Simulated assay, not measured.
Amino acid sequence: MAHSVRRTLAALVLLGVAVAILASLGAWQLRRADERRAILAAIQAGRAQPPLALAPATAPAELGAWRPARANGQWLAQYSVLLQNRNQEGRPGYWLATPLLLDPARHSAVLVLRGWLPRAEPGQASPPLPATPDGQHGITGELSPRVPRLFELWALGGSQQGQLPATLPVAGGVVPQVQNLELSAYAQATGLTLLPTVLMQTRGDDGLVRDWPQPSVDYDQNQGYALQWFSFAAIAAIAWLVVAWRGLRRSRPAG
């Protein structure tokens, strides 16, 4: 009899823990759905704003993410940087980042993500880059508060692989290849006064691919997962009640 009671209590404890864990997983999926719904609303709100003409005096409050924008200036190709490990439809390659000079007197510029190009052929240090003609150019795109990041495994070990040189341009005209690019570090390396935003170019005739990644906003998927976890929690709760009812029946003295 004592053995049966211990088994019943153990089963109730395990089922109670299962109910709590499964219900918490369902609640977590609902929170993820709310986060993705908020991201979608932010994207839609940003893209619904009127196009912004970028200038050195543009207020940071106007530089909202996903807002359409236009900049006029001169390419500074000597400061170009390649961002590694950016895949496009399964193909390995790079993003090309080049600053656009807005005001020569102030050294004011905006960093432009110009587009994707495939990885260099075997034996090449870097792929051929599209030309950056002299003179004024009008660039259109969408704003991002930063260059989208990749997780750097070697950052935990302190390795310098894939990091930005301390000074740009690099001697010999070598185009640096980095994993991630922080605006503050890039401004220090180039000596430019950068706007606190990145312009992701959306149009151009230089052959670069401009299919920029977007955060996942499929909140319906999270809601579906939440329903599954809550269903499992309900099954575990019913099992808890069944085990408890049977335990009570066994504990009653025979009539």
Rank of each mutant, 00 (worst) to 15 (best):
V170M: 12
A236M: 03
E121F: 07
V112W: 06
P133R: 12
V243G: 11
P68F: 15
V174L: 10
A155R: 13
G73Q: 09
I39H: 05
L150V: 02
Q44G: 01
G64T: 13
T190R: 07
L143N: 08
D211V: 15
Q221T: 14
Y219I: 05
L192H: 07
Q221S: 14
V147T: 01
G255W: 14
A189F: 09
R106T: 11
V209H: 15
A59P: 09
R249E: 13
P215F: 02
A69D: 05
L83H: 00
L181H: 04
H137Y: 12
W240L: 14
L96K: 05
P51C: 02
V174I: 02
E89S: 06
R252Y: 11
A187L: 01
I238C: 12
Q44L: 12
Q179I: 14
V147D: 03
L150R: 15
V170E: 10
P122A: 07
G191Y: 10
M1Y: 02
R146Y: 15
W95M: 09
G207W: 02
D205P: 00
D206F: 06
G138K: 04
G162S: 07
L52E: 03
E121W: 10
G247A: 03
L9S: 00
P253K: 06
Q124Y: 08
E121C: 04
P60M: 02
Q179P: 03
G162F: 10
A2G: 01
L30S: 11
L143Y: 08
R36T: 07
R114G: 12
E89C: 04
